[in-house]
Amino acid sequence: NDSSGEAKTSKDSYEIRVAHLVNEKQSTHVALEDFKKAVEERTDGKVSVTLYPNGSLYASDREAIEAVQLGNLEMTVPAVAPLANFNSKFMVFDLPFLFDSRDAAHSALDGELGQQLLTELEQNDLKGLVFGENGFRNMSNNEAPIEEPSDLDGLKFRTMSNPVHTASFNAWGANASPLAFGELYTALQQGTYDAMESPISLYYTQKFYEVQDYLTKTGHFYAATVMLTNNDYFNNLPEDIQSVIQEEAENWRANQREIAAKQDAEWLKSLQDEGMKVNELSDEQKQVFMEESQSVYDKFSDEIGQNLIDMAKDAN
């Protein structure tokens, strides 16, 4: 249904606009700059890549994905969470404690599970190239370090607008509700909310350390990202350009994950320097959380598909 893609087959120059939400310092963008350079060089400037960070072109992932789907934007790198609205299989990533470690996540996403999910997207007019990551999401609050689910009792907890997330936190005893990201800082400062959860990078880049005292490395959700183009647009590119883009996407993935890991370590230290008290969950403690979220798995396993969940769990 996208005619602009077909008209382009005979063209001798291509513009790829990449719109995403994170700021210029974050790993996704830093690695995209290398991606841009490599693609432009390897195609002798036939392809030009323009980056629009900070949500300057599209203010939300949902909107950017939709624009790619409509053929109005060539590429975006959203978090996978909003993709669940486009394809319910992607809800698998919303499940708590799905992956034990980064390595497990990488091997699942770069292997059969990832491939199956990327293929799924073609039904939605989207072409997923590779999975990147925002890292594990962690919890923070202003009361005390979190060690067991009962520590969440009664906390006014901000979650993303996502039914699995809200269900998980409510299962652990929190009073969870979604709130627009832009209102979060003030809400925490004023005490409208007591607690939040996000990847390390956001605590640092958005200065949440100023309004949150305790950070617990729960790693309860693994936040993947995905490099997306329009399916027709990609398939109508000349094959040599397609393979350059696919290869450089894979280089971007390796590069981005490496920078992300480095930044997480660096920024975690900065958060401690800023006065956040950081604690980690032991495997036993994680096990308790995991057991208390069984109801969430039971509730959503039919919609997501048990085989996808098993594939993810097998990577651990």
């Binding site: 949902r62 609205n85 486009f86 319910s88 939605n124 607008s161 996502n162």
Partner: peptide, 10 residues
């Protein structure tokens, strides 16, 4: 055609 759902009410 693409069947997108809303985030909260689905």
């Amino acid at each position: 055609g693409t069947g997108q759902l809303t985030p909260a009410m689905r």
